[in-house]
Design a binder for these strands. Sequence first.
DNA 1: CAAAGTTCCTGCGAGC
DNA 2: TGCTCGCAGGAACTTT
Length: 300
Amino acid sequence: MPELPEVETVKNGLAKAWVGKTIEKIILRRENLRYPFPENLSNRLEGHKIIGIRRRAKYLLIDTDGDLVFLSHLGMSGKYTLFDSKSVSKYDLNDSEKKSVFGEKTGFSGKHDHMEIRFEDGSVSVYTDPRRFGIVKLFHRSEEQVQSLLEVLGPEPFDDWNAQIAADRCRNKRSPIKTTLLDQRFVVGVGNIYACEALHKAGISPTKQAYKLVTKAGKPTKALQKLVDEVKIVLTKAIAAGGSTLNDFADVDGNLGYFSHQFSVYGREDEPCLKEGCGGIIDRIVQSNRSTFLCPRCQK
DNA sequence: CAAAGTTCCTGCGAGC
DNA sequence: TGCTCGCAGGAACTTT
């Protein structure tokens, strides 16, 4: 599920829930997600206090009072569920009792709860991830610059990115602009949903080749300028939507990061285009093995 | 059949 | 011709 706005929302939730707490132990229910869990994960973090939570691209970086950084990526289906010391008794049930308390759909039937972080104050945070595309890594803060997962990343959309930087990277690109938006070396944090949304808002066809959005002189066209603006707007609005559903940093069951949005094109195949006066019908095509939603009428 | 992410592999064309 | 390099596109991972 998570693109930048969802990860940002989870970051804010974890900042409230975790910062200041000391890790008692980490319990693993299997040996790997996408990659093996780090060796001695629990031993290395035991007794260390969490001092801050950062986000880089779609990665969560949890800083501890030692020099260790705990990296967490949610993949497609990862989530954290938080139990305070009072509600943790709900989680500390056997599997059949859990089913009756949480129902089948929560994931707390036991099967996909792969990692438990237990804190000294008695609270527990559970990482659930049915598809197991998530990643957990542990590294020394001094090694952060050379982490292979992080060093390949492009600019953060809000801090380091503008139309000229985008133009420099699009200049010789023959790939479709939608594929380019999904490339984390181009700009980080944009996933399939917000790529579709931003292209629709900007009125650009997802199949347009990236270099066609750059002038001969290497400057961004008006359309590319608009796209860069719309990416930022779409992400900003989604972060705001996430924040507004996160008053208590988690819903009643303690779930973080899952909130519903209203999309303009994503998931709206065969429905009318919502752009004022357009009258088009939303189409779905496949690019790089992923669904792209677009309005053929107002996206050129 | 499709799903919100990322890495890795193969194939192709350019250039030496 | 043959080799290397970089880019582009596709497969793979997994479960519901």
